[in-house]
């Protein structure tokens, strides 16, 4: 990649021309890397820009859609999936991609999250998990590890964290995968698969927030946080061979679940056909 080539860089094809920069992400944040991975996945799949709707909630992660040149919906805290459900059901031919965070998806929006999984509506959801409420300055979230220090857990977090992928799989999502900002090439492939999949897809994207999480938890720089991702993420194929005692403090990445479930808008079309008397034998 030559420097002189920047205008041809794939990401520039998808940046909004009339949006004022800089973006709001801190230097070293993982969210930009993941947004970049999403854009590369979309570019690889050659999806029509006009047929993509990005929906997000509230938080650092949810600011990602404003920079990219798609129809974008920055909604209410926790409600991105409820909006996205309306978007997709109203116009099933659109590709609906939701960008949300750990707090947005699994705390305030936890109910919408499990019901979107259960309905299996064809939406791709990226949960940018940085284990903290970054935008409000570092309060503990449902994915902050036990013992983790946060501005509202100065003595250490005592709440057991959610495993977002287990939650999604248990609630009925048809595609569940996890990647990290460090393993970015794998992340691009995972997002491609998630977009192509007909049904509700969840990609947990492990991201770093050294500003609000790392600095309180012995990982002062983004580099230290990415080293933590490198050392903790285990590919699903290697995970199964890993003895139980070596799994402590580690997490698996890759495609964790891939099911064939009936998709909601497809099923609803059958309702429309039935209500309109189509597909029935017509007596002459």
């Amino acid at each position: 990649m030559k420097m002189g080539n920047i205008p041809d860089h794939v990401v520039f094809k998808y940046l909004r021309k009339n949006k004022k920069f800089p973006h709001i992400f801190c230097p070293g944040c993982g969210h930009g890397i993941i947004l970049g991975a999403l854009i590369r996945a979309i570019d690889n799949l050659k999806v029509d820009k006009n047929k993509i709707v990005m929906v997000s909630g509230i938080g650092c992660s949810s600011r990602a859609p404003v920079y990219s040149d798609f129809s974008s919906f920055h909604t209410l805290h926790g409600r991105a999936l409820a909006f996205a459900t309306g978007v997709k059901l109203a116009n099933p031919e659109l590709n609906v991609i939701v960008i949300t965070g750990d707090g947005d998806a699994s705390a305030i929006g936890g109910n919408h999250f499990i019901h979107a999984c259960r309905r299996n509506i064809d939406i791709t959801t990226l949960v940018l998990n940085n284990n903290i409420y970054g935008m409000t300055g570092g309060q503990y979230s449902p994915t902050t590890p036990v013992g983790g220090i946060a501005s509202t857990a100065p003595f250490g977090n005592i709440e057991k964290p959610f495993d977002i992928c287990e939650l999604a799989n248990g609630a009925g999502a048809s595609f569940v995968a996890r990647g990290t900002a460090f393993n970015v090439t794998a992340m691009i492939k995972i997002i491609e698969q998630a977009i192509v999949k007909k049904g509700f897809s969840v990609v947990e994207a492990v991201s770093q927030c050294h500003t609000a999480f790392g600095r309180r938890n012995k990982m002062k720089s983004p580099v230290e946080m990415m080293k933590w991702q490198r050392d903790s993420a285990v590919d699903i194929r290697a995970w199964d061979k890993l003895p139980e005692e070596k799994r402590t403090g580690k997490f698996k990445i890759g495609v964790l679940a891939d099911h064939e479930y009936p998709e909601y808008t497809h099923e609803y079309q059958k309702i429309i056909d039935r209500a309109q008397g189509k597909g029935k034998e017509v007596k002459k």
Binding site: T75, A82, T85, G86, L89, A90, L94, N111, H115
Partner: peptide, 21 residues
């Protein structure tokens, strides 16, 4: 669609409205 709560319901409606419905 029957949503999981009323806030989800109005959000879905706003989403559909942005699609022209």
């Amino acid at each position: 669609i029957q949503m999981e709560d009323e806030l989800g319901s109005i959000c879905a409606c706003i989403g559909a409205s942005a699609m022209g419905r």
